[in-house]
Amino acid sequence: MLSTLRAYIVGEHGDSSVALWSSISVGGVPIHSFLERQQIAYEKQTLEKIHKEVVEGAYEVISLKGYTSWAIGYSVASLARAILRDQRSIHPVSVLAKGFYGIHGGEPFLSLPAQLGRSGVLGVTNVHLTEEEEKQLQKSAKTILELQAQLGI
């Protein structure tokens, strides 16, 4: 039997992205509970390694194929479907992050879980972040703000 996996990677699209382990679920069960029930041992370093492999996976695909257009096309189709059908479903999309999760100063646009419908982004979803995840997201925002400053925007 297949289970639905729900996971969010937020922040900057790249090296400072943040895996929201606290909100990942398998078949509706939080990942930490799922791993415990399955008696699968894990450590923080294991989760960090998985996230690093996800980030580096894109670089590997590009080096092997030269592009990642299938994933991009699939994502765009999913976003368009949510908007055109007014599904009001949650998708991680780039939004103005100022004021969310302790992000202040400047106008960083980051990937955050947002509800999409016929009018586009209906709002940012208030996903619970651990204190560590929130700090990582703020660091990701700082990365974007520094890049914006370098570019003069």
Rank of each mutant, 00 (worst) to 15 (best):
L147C: 06
I24R: 02
P108A: 11
G106W: 13
V29S: 11
Y101C: 04
V124I: 12
L64E: 15
L64Q: 15
P108S: 07
L129G: 01
G105T: 02
A80C: 07
V29C: 11
Y74Q: 13
L147N: 09
R81D: 13
V121D: 10
G102S: 10
A58Q: 07
R88N: 13
K98F: 03
S140L: 08
Q138F: 08
L145D: 01
Q87A: 14
V95P: 07
I24G: 00
H104N: 09
V95Q: 06
S140Q: 03
E36P: 00
W70E: 12
F100C: 01
Y59T: 03
I50V: 15
L145F: 01
H32F: 11
Y101V: 03
K135A: 11
V61R: 08
E43S: 15
I90S: 02
E134D: 00
S78C: 08
R118A: 11
A80V: 15
W70C: 05
G106S: 09
T68Y: 07
L20E: 05
G117H: 04
K98D: 08
L129Q: 01
V95E: 04
Q148L: 15
A141F: 08
Q39T: 14
L64W: 09
A97V: 01
K139I: 00
G105M: 04
Q115V: 14
I24K: 01
W21A: 07
G106P: 10
G66I: 04
Y67M: 03
V76I: 14
A80Q: 07
Q39R: 14
S140I: 08
K139Q: 11
V54N: 04
A77V: 05
S89V: 10
A71G: 12
S78L: 13
L122H: 07
L79Y: 04
G105L: 02
S89N: 06
V124Y: 06
G105W: 05
E36K: 15
Q45I: 10
K44A: 13
Q87N: 09
S94D: 02
T68G: 14
T130Y: 05
R37P: 00
S75P: 00
A114C: 10
K135Y: 02
S33R: 15
A80R: 06
Y59F: 09
Q45D: 14
F34Y: 15
E134Q: 15
G102R: 05
V121I: 15
G28Y: 10
N126A: 14
S63E: 12
I31D: 05
A58F: 14
Y74T: 14
L20S: 01
Q148I: 08
L35W: 04
R37C: 04
